[in-house]
Design a protein around this nucleic acid. Structure first.
Length: 243
DNA sequence: ATGGCGAAAACGTTTCGA
């Protein structure tokens, strides 16, 4: 089973790129973040035509998560938080979740503490799936280790000790970050040399429960998508499980 | 050290993203 996760930074602006990625990889499951559209305006017809089932949790202009699957989508739930930042489902024998953690603005900002709360709640949410085959993919907006940031000593937002420590709690609970050492996933639009020189962060992750780790085959960052026309600032990531 | 880009809402500019 192939699962792709991608922060698309607007599905309406990225629909052609999403179709390119789908046609190249034919994922069983696609987890999207930052779709930035209300459900009634989501371009679902593109996905319907390819035979995908659809679950959406959107809001006007900001946030927005979605799950597409070639398998039936059951037990769809998105009430984890009031914003459109989390959606889970059971599909093809696997529990999946599409996760969009708040960016936190700046260390010490009100949004930063909201981000820490969100990560704490997420740990509890994942714990409920400890004994299941569970794969959470998304934009976690934290660079877990020194090589995941532009400089090893960078300790600003995305790299602060409290943020990293909350993600470590999730790993310590048995959920493996399968893309460690697999490269960066986000490069700032505002300096085109950043991508060329690979100056960015590894913010997009998959967390696999112990049972999911047992059938894990391979995981990669799909860097090529950052070079498509009008790209998202995030690259998609892929997780393959044995059937 | 600062600003740089891109998208959306609602304006002719502002806010947010990370």
């Amino acid at each position: 089973m192939k699962i792709i996760s991608w922060n698309v930074n607007s599905i309406r602006a990225r629909i052609d790129s999403v179709m390119t990625v789908i046609h190249k990889f034919s994922p069983d499951v696609l987890l999207l973040q930052e779709t930035r559209v209300e459900d009634h305006a989501f371009p679902v017809e593109y996905f319907d035509d390819l035979g995908y089932n659809v679950a959406l949790k959107g809001q006007k202009g900001r946030n927005g998560v979605a799950i597409f699957s070639k398998h039936m989508l059951e037990e769809v739930r998105g009430d984890f938080c009031s914003e459109a930042r989390y959606l889970e489902a059971f599909t093809g024998g696997v529990f999946v979740a599409s996760v969009y953690v708040p960016n936190g603005q700046m260390i010490g900002a009100e949004q930063y503490y909201h981000k820490l709360d969100f990560l704490r709640d997420l740990e509890k949410k994942f714990a409920a799936f400890q004994a299941e085959v569970f794969v959470a993919g998304g934009d976690f907006n934290v660079a877990p280790h020194a090589p995941d940031a532009p400089r090893p000593d960078y300790d600003g937002i995305m790299c602060s000790e409290p943020e990293r420590s909350l993600l470590k709690n999730i790993r310590d609970a048995g959920f493996r970050d399968i893309l460690e050492q697999k490269g960066l996933t986000w490069w700032d639009y505002r300096r085109s040399s950043n991508f060329r020189q690979d100056v960015g962060f590894r913010l997009d992750h998959f967390y696999l429960s112990p049972k999911a780790c047992g059938i894990f085959k391979n995981g990669e960052v799909l860097r090529f998508a950052r070079e498509l026309p009008r790209p998202s600032d995030h690259a998609p990531i892929i997780c393959e499980l044995n059937p």
